[in-house]
Amino acid sequence: MSDPDTSHAIRRILVALDASPDSVAALEMAVDLAARMEAELAGLFVEDVALLRMADSPSAREIAYPAASQAPLNRAIMERKLRAQSEQIRNTLAAAAHRAQLRWSFQTVRGEVTSVLRTAAGQSDIVAIGRLGWSSGSRLRIGSTALELATSRIPLLLISRRAVLGNLRLAVYYDGSPASKSALLVTASLARPGAQGITVLVCTADYEKTLAEIRSLLQGRAIEVRYRRVDPDQKTSLLRAVKDEGAVLLVLADRQLLKDVESFEALLREVEVPLLLLGNGFGHEEADSSRQIVG
């Protein structure tokens, strides 16, 4: 196994938008990342065909907020609503991009949400998505779209959620695997030198040896690093550590936990900070070692 390489140039960040609070949070994080990496920001709004199909039904109806009044519904009305929603999202994106002086684009695509996003993800270096969309109940903690994308082969997936209070630290899960080494280097690339520290959540048998390894990997970077030992078999141990550190982002190489899909999904549901997932397509493949986060 060769040394991990993170030479992954971030040129385009795709942000999936549906105007839900979490998707707005995803936009904010994507803008921040794009500004730091001088990347293009690509907004994507999907006109969900499921909704249009429902609107086609002669007996379909809408119970509108907040008065709980019944409103007529048909395809034309639904299309109009989707267009309005799209326009609103576009304006939000444009304003945010303008403030940050970013190159940006916006696209509205009609289709099934997850498949459209999967397709679009192939043309982007990072995909940012809200943790919960409109159609998801908050009891779910993570929406079906986010969950499906998390288990796909998207190289870098940012699952965002509404603003959390914290001390700006970035947390990264490290188990000594090449994937976790890539995650560590990605995290180090994201941290603002001198302003943002990282906490490495160490999960190895030989703790001291791992620390030496990490120090070697991070050598030459002006970043304040803290270490915290976590129990690989205890999900709560990881969650507690993230919370205690006041982290605003947790970086995970998804392959690390894919061995146990249920545990991974449970972790996705319960972690309370935004997540950056390094998917299978990212640079920890032994055969693909030429990527680097250029920040």
Binding site: R61, E62, L73
Partner: peptide, 19 residues
């Protein structure tokens, strides 16, 4: 189904919206 403006009700069969 929940949308930004309200809830949509539609008839289904086998969990698919009837055309």
């Amino acid at each position: 189904l929940r949308t930004p403006t309200g809830w949509i009700l539609a008839p289904t069969r086998n969990r698919e919206v009837i055309s």
